[in-house]
Design a protein around this nucleic acid. Structure first.
Lengths: 335, 335
DNA sequence: ACATGCCATGTAAGCGCTTACAATTCTTAT
DNA sequence: ATAAGAATTGTAAGCGCTTACATGGCATGT
């Protein structure tokens, strides 16, 4: 069933059918109804490929993320997909993993598939060296690129992010002033937002202790799912003589491991040991006591991101960078 | 840059360029090289829409799920996407929510977009009444439809699922025989696989206690994220006089709530109170003690599902239904 | 009654590719 | 050397749609 069949049955030209389909104003009400009637009598659906070829779009957006099963990214993907769908865009999902090479390839793949825009969900897509971000610049030269939780000074690349520095700064000050002086910062990402968080922690500690505390920032290099390995890592630190009575984590997963660690060490939380997480994910409610965590307003970020992207596609001027501030959700793991 | 430009620069016809692009054997090595050389010198990429129009496929699969941020579904989507990508298929993600009306609409949307096949991730897509599954039958009449964790006797609908009945039966027997006689079955889904699990529990209990235990199966109707509400629900049951010293949950989220409940009641786990979850998700490692949970081999299921789908598209005969058995992962919440 | 202009419709030329079929060139066996 | 057949290449007809432009009908103002 093609547009020709419909035009024939309705006794009009294919141009008229096409006009009806595309909501053109230049069709008399009578013809429109006649065509519409035939269309749903015969159950016709336009061929998306032909349509795409003619219009040069299939209203599809590319969403890239390292791992859509990571709780935080899963949420991001979900919010973005919903918001896009509400604007009748479909989402082509592309999980790249964390290897840099794969990212450029995936990006090209999406462009090849002719998506209307690309969303990079997660700050791990931007790197330090400019040359490593070339793949983003290349893509942005062709279609709009949106960054979630990262920032990059490249034309046609737009960002929506939370103010990780301030959130982490603020949180650190609070924990410190609650009496926990030896705070371990536990993080697993050197991504853009990972760095901002770390900087926030360090700035606060420097200010509070009037000394460099960088030794207290420990990088965890491992799967975000292997909680046992994280706990072992913390034990190991302790065995090596690093003293800490509180952990601020760059992520709820790590924070949970810290809670587990404290429990295994027989520390009472929050009396003897404080833990603070980041992202305020479901995980925060899953431990005992519940996790104090920084909520970075993911849903708002995602909605804003999509709004910006759609605006861009409509040719409107949009803010190149939008920053939202986070919020500390106090629960049982801090005092 | 189109195929015409390339053909001109290479001094061959567009047919030859197309043949090179599609790996046709009927091209001399010399011409192939010449064309390939021009192609990457000028950086040409075929137009996907035109290609789609000609080939009637864009190598895209539709993945539908109620909520891709649900930990279990997120994993499923991830595994499926990865396996598809490894076979150079892209994934169009479509989160439908749990409302039945939305499902049919989303399905049509995907078909309209000309996906090569549709994957329904999660058993909530199949309903009791045959008429409610009509939307699946309609879709299946057009393209192959794969069901994850569900089963439906409709032509052109293929299923890959885990043996939920047996897993739950087995688990229930184990918990019962460990000495917990008054087990509460806590579930939140009447989906296909939800029913199978419940049946497994009931069958085991009937056998063990030689009496109907249906009163001990309690349905929780609420968000999978609102842990507090779940705990309250359990407290409420207890206040109403329902005695239970163990909970078997249809899902790790519910199981976590049970752990929380037990803790608030000051029951020691597993001595005074046993909990068993389902899905063996990350959550299982997040509580204290860690959750005994049924692993239903999601990755295997997903890989098999994609293999089947791809086989179908290649016109091969494939098993209409594949069942894998689960495994009980014993951890600290059962004795 | 007639020119003016607008609105509705039709015609036909793409969009960029695939592929059946025709044409040409190259092998190989005789 | 030559005919038959295989391998390579070209020609052109779609695939199903959008849309610029052309055409014709009708209302309006004079």
């Amino acid at each position: 069933m093609t547009i020709y069949d419909i035009s024939e049955k309705a006794g009009v030209s294919i141009a008229t059918v096409s006009r009806v389909l595309n909501g053109s104003r230049n069709v008399s009400d009578k013809t429109r109804e006649k065509v519409l009637d035939i269309i749903d009598r015969y159950g016709y659906t336009p061929n998306a490929f032909a349509r795409g070829l003619g219009l040069n779009t299939m209203r599809t957006m590319g969403i890239m993320c390292a791992d859509s099963s990571d709780p935080y990214l899963a949420k991001a993907v979900y919010y973005i997909e919903q918001k896009l769908r509400a604007n009748s865009y479909d989402s082509l999902l592309c999980c790249t993993g964390y290897a840099p090479e794969a990212k450029a390839a995936s990006m090209n793949l999406l462009i090849t598939k002719k998506v209307d825009g690309i969303i990079l969900a997660g700050s791990n897509f931007v790197h330090d060296k400019e040359c490593e971000n070339k793949y983003i610049a290349d893509a942005a030269a062709q279609i709009p690129v949106m960054l979630l939780n990262a920032d990059l000074d490249i034309p046609n690349v737009y960002s929506v992010l939370s103010d990780d520095f301030s959130s982490m700064y603020e949180a650190t000050v609070q924990v410190f002033q609650s009496g926990v002086k030896d705070i371990l910062y536990f993080y697993n990402s050197n991504s853009y937002s990972g760095k901002r968080k770390l900087a926030g922690f360090l700035a606060a500690m420097k200010e509070q202790t009037a000394s460099e505390a960088s030794a207290m920032a420990q990088f965890y290099h491992g799967s975000h799912e292997d909680v046992h390995a994280m706990v072992d890592y913390l034990k190991n630190l302790r065995d090596k003589g690093l003293a800490f009575h509180g952990v601020i984590a760059s992520d709820d997963t790590l924070a949970l491991a810290a809670v587990k660690y404290a429990r295994e060490m027989n520390c009472r939380i929050p009396d003897d040991f404080s833990v603070l997480g980041y992202n305020n994910s479901v995980l925060a409610l899953c431990c005992e006591p519940e996790l104090t965590s920084i909520d970075n307003k993911l849903e708002t970020l995602c909605q804003h991101l999509v709004t910006t992207l759609l605006g861009l596609l409509e040719g409107r001027e949009m803010p190149k960078k939008t920053v939202f501030s986070g919020e500390i959700i106090r629960r049982g793991t801090t005092r």
